[in-house]
Design a protein around this nucleic acid. Structure first.
Lengths: 243, 243
DNA sequence: CGGGGCCTTCGGCGGGTGCCGAACCGTCGT
DNA sequence: ACGACGGTTCGGCACCCGCCGAAGGCCCCG
């Protein structure tokens, strides 16, 4: 990644790569794009322009930088330019960065519509490719309480945890360079939840199996009736904790 | 942290906090300062100015931004202004960011002096408050091979691992909000090594007990003769792996 | 084949910011 | 008490970069 960065430097003390990478994130419009793309989907340039509130021409230049920097991957289809986050590590980086921001610095919603949308997001949402919000926390806590996930000495699945995934019919790609389990700090709950290969597999399975459905066009997800049963049977999660 | 950031925004889609935080890292001079401060020590403003190759007045302004943004903490002593990384999570953020940069993008050393210093750094160094380089990898691998650290399902100490730290006389602060074990991606070896509370405690103990000593004014560390014995007895690390 | 939608390129504008040198202030040493 | 030194403030300069509108290209659809 970061293919287009110059390496010309007089002193090896300098860090052009680091500054250039941070520079890609250091613009409000580009940051808004990356946060929007954290939903894991591919957006068109026009959608992002309207979302960020800038002219299409302006956004086109931003996309050029983000794609050139390796943060985004693009896919041209006819007259549309679809763009998505290039790699999970990019999503992780944006998440980590966002988690550094003090909670009280985050803007509060003003309108009722934004408030209800916000509370839906707080209940449950996807964070790139895994579950977050109160739902993500509840699942992570349940895994931990049942001895399937270990958080007290780090963050890793246990052997019973591996068997649980197998028993639930959720295959885990173990050959991946990506870590099997990783902590992602939730920026509404300020608590870690399950990310990594296992987090992504669990989220995908929950959506495929109809345990959760996406609501609206945002990242928010809702637990279905079937989901309440499944989460309860498999992890002993109370239905009340999912609402 | 990030106390001085404005929250005035017309749309909650915007992410002024994220962009502002990234903006602090998006300058070559500031990035050079942060990388230098990754040695965990406190530097004076003048040292940093000479290190970065800019006028003292210029660096003073940079320090104002970094301190104001909560990334650095300062301590005034007489006519000196000592500055250090404010919190471990800031160091973690810089490490994560640096790890994103492609290895072949990293500048290669030009002079012989830089090359030898580079190889000393590659052998062993500190990464903020824990061990890195080949030494850090060797220790992490040895912990993993002995079943004290689990990397295959995430990154966490095992129960024998907890007892090992106790038996070695290395106390672990368990009440901390900081994770006990965390993976830090080494940017010379491109492999994870032990960070977090356990990594910091192990590094501090290794320096206190004389297993390692700092060489030069950089982050590089060297394994002593006593260290070779200790690493061998406690973790079965071959002396050859430490050189 | 023509029209409209999506995107990109280009020119130009304005604001932000990194940089320096000069002047100033406080501290430490002599 | 004086000078040296480290750090800061200020003014000014130059550059970079985000923004827009206008114009053009490309693709799809009618």
């Amino acid at each position: 990644m970061l293919g287009s960065m110059t390496t010309t430097t007089t002193r090896d003390v300098r860090a052009p790569g680091l500054a250039a990478l941070a520079g890609l994130l250091a613009d409000e419009t580009r940051a808004a794009c990356l946060l929007a793309l954290l939903d894991g989907r591919a957006w068109t340039a026009g959608e992002l322009a309207r979302h960020a509130g800038v002219a299409p021409s302006t956004l086109s230049e931003h996309l050029g930088k983000l794609v050139g920097g390796g943060l985004l991957a693009e896919e041209r289809q006819g007259r549309h330019r679809y763009v998505r986050i290039a790699e999970p590590r990019v999503a992780q980086l944006v998440e980590d960065l966002a988690a550094q921001i003090a909670p009280d610095t985050a803007p509060r919603p003003h309108t009722l519509r934004a408030a209800t949308a916000g509370s839906a997001m707080a209940r449950g949402r996807t964070c790139y490719d895994h579950l977050a919000g109160r739902l993500g926390i509840a699942v992570t806590d349940a895994l931990t309480a049942r001895g399937l996930l270990r958080q007290d000495t780090g963050f890793a699945l246990t052997d019973p945890g591996l068997r649980w995934f197998e028993g639930a019919g959720i295959p885990l790609e173990r050959a991946s360079r990506r870590p099997l389990a990783r902590a992602c700090l939730d920026w509404t709950e300020r608590r870690p939840h399950l990310a990594g290969v296992a987090g992504a597999a669990l989220c995908r399975h929950a959506l495929d199996a109809g345990w959760c459905v996406r609501i609206g066009t945002e990242r928010a997800v809702k637990v279905t009736a079937a989901g309440e049963r499944a989460w309860g049977e498999l992890l002993g999660i109370e239905a009340a904790a999912l609402r």
